[in-house]
Amino acid sequence: MDTVPENACMGPGLVLIFWGVIFSVIAAVWVALVVAAIWGWKRNIVWLKWGATVAAGLFAVAAVAIVGFFAFGVYWFSRPTEVFHEAFREYPSPEVSDLESRQFFFADNGEVRMRFITTRLEYERLVPGDLRPSSAEEVRRRMGIRSEGDPEWWTFQFNPSWQYALRETERDANRAGKRGFFWELEVFAYDPSASVAYYFFSGID
Rank of each mutant, 00 (worst) to 15 (best):
F182M: 13
V4F: 03
F182A: 08
D108E: 10
G68D: 04
F158S: 06
A37F: 02
N7D: 15
R140T: 06
D108V: 11
V74T: 10
D205G: 11
K49V: 05
R179M: 02
K178P: 09
A71F: 11
E137V: 04
I38C: 05
F23H: 12
V127N: 02
F69T: 11
I66A: 09
F23R: 12
T81G: 00
P192W: 07
R142T: 06
W154R: 04
W153S: 06
V34C: 05
W153D: 03
V35E: 04
G13L: 08
R171T: 15
I17E: 07
A189N: 05
T119F: 04
Q103H: 10
F70D: 10
V64F: 04
L14K: 11
V4G: 01
V54F: 12
S93W: 05
A194N: 09
E111L: 09
V25K: 08
A65F: 14
F88D: 11
E86D: 12
G144T: 05
G180Q: 12
V74Y: 07
I117Y: 01
Q103M: 09
V139N: 07
L58Y: 04
N44R: 11
S97M: 06
G57D: 06
S202M: 07
E82G: 00
A62G: 06
A36N: 00
A52H: 10
P12M: 10
Y198S: 01
L16H: 14
T155H: 04
E86S: 11
P94G: 02
S101C: 02
T53Q: 03
A194S: 11
G203M: 08
V67H: 14
W153L: 08
V15Y: 06
G203W: 04
R167A: 09
L121E: 12
F106V: 11
Y199G: 03
D191K: 00
V15P: 00
F106Y: 09
F18M: 13
W19V: 00
R140F: 07
W19I: 03
T53G: 03
K49M: 13
F105E: 01
E6K: 05
A63S: 15
R142N: 04
I26V: 13
G177Q: 01
R43H: 07
E186I: 13
V127L: 05
M1K: 14
V96R: 01
V196C: 10
D2A: 15
I22V: 15
L121D: 13
F158P: 02
V34F: 02
V54N: 14
R171L: 15
C9G: 12
G110Q: 04
E86W: 10
F158K: 05
K178N: 13
W19G: 00
Y199W: 14
V187M: 01
R142W: 03
W162F: 07
W153Y: 13
V46W: 09
